[in-house]
Design a protein around this nucleic acid. Sequence first.
DNA 1: TACAGTTCTGACCATGCGGTCAAATTTTCG
DNA 2: CGAAAATTTGACCGCATGGTCAGAACTGTA
Lengths: 214, 214
Amino acid sequence: MRSNFRTSGQSDDEPTITEAARRAQILQHAIDVVADLGYAGASLNRIAEHAGISKGLISYHFAGKSDLLKAIVQEVYRRGIGFLYERAEAGEPATAGAALKSYLEGHLAFIGSHAREVGAVVEVVRNLRDAEGRLVYNNAWDAESYGELMRIFEAGQASGEFREFDPRVMAISVRRVIDGFTFQVMGFPDIDVAAFTAEVVALFDHATTPRERS
Amino acid sequence: MRSNFRTSGQSDDEPTITEAARRAQILQHAIDVVADLGYAGASLNRIAEHAGISKGLISYHFAGKSDLLKAIVQEVYRRGIGFLYERAEAGEPATAGAALKSYLEGHLAFIGSHAREVGAVVEVVRNLRDAEGRLVYNNAWDAESYGELMRIFEAGQASGEFREFDPRVMAISVRRVIDGFTFQVMGFPDIDVAAFTAEVVALFDHATTPRERS
DNA sequence: TACAGTTCTGACCATGCGGTCAAATTTTCG
DNA sequence: CGAAAATTTGACCGCATGGTCAGAACTGTA
């Protein structure tokens, strides 16, 4: 019998077709339930019921609930990276301003077309705690996501394209506005994604560039 | 025996000294527990234990858990309004830009000095759901908080002080950045509140005003 | 077909939850 | 003081939770 204590990450031989398909199915239903019922409402029983399987089967494919929830985060990130990668194939932006614009448009487009997945991730990230009560995805963790933005800002400031500001505060602000878009889309599914994106791009274009034209 | 089914709001005679004090005590401990352990970790048992009282006593003073959590939100709002009111006594800002600056400085100062309370409120607002699974503090609810900001923006645009932008998107962005400050303060208690505030004020000053000087 | 490995179920477990309540305690006040 | 009212406790209830497990069902293969 194979170990049912598989931790995602290390490859123990290779997963069966069944195993991979079942994991994907469970993951998708878990995403749906978290998006619909929120973190607190997403019990293993409800996920199993939603997927039409028994609860024990989830335990067979995932080491525990927190393992499943972490897999949600990992999976949606994987999708997001794929989405942004395809978009980026058009070529590298030439200026820091173009890079910021591309960053915003890419992320907002992904959220606009994958609101439920991203909503589920936000739910998990904001609520999942370890046994000692500490947030698993803490400040140190999301500080990592500021890296790409901060590099854009520092490059723009070095070239004189951007005004002087604290790149960390600006990065935090950009991430907050992007993440907030998730709630807008979930709350108002008919929202005009393109119009919202254009507004946000203009907002941060003005926020980052000096008032006097160079 | 007095009804223990008091709903906050309608005054049923007047509360006893004991009642008011006990309610305040329970509320404060509830805030602490939610801030420390998060929404999911804040059970009535833990709150009672933290307060050094029996769980039944909470039920005596509050109609239920959701009543208690809603009271947290109400109480912290009350404190926030008081804080901002005292600050505003210095006089009304003359321009829309000054009003926005004052709004940001006031809200960030309150968060900087009451991070735990605000953190608890955010936790409740983001998680509390009714029996049907719908968020109690939904999009329609927090849209109310955009009102004051949108009035500032519309006034600034009417006078030509602000550039043309969607006041709703700008209001959402401002609120998102302000709320995000809560997590920064909770994650890094030694953060320089004044410096962060100055950066945010500059960010939205640039974001709202036209590039060409009038 | 027979058998070994796997996938899957459904019953079960201990725990913690929100909530209730009779009884004990404390306070109020005539 | 003494009775009535307010306050508080601690035991208890039904329920949902995450997790476990023996065994049934399925699958591939020799």
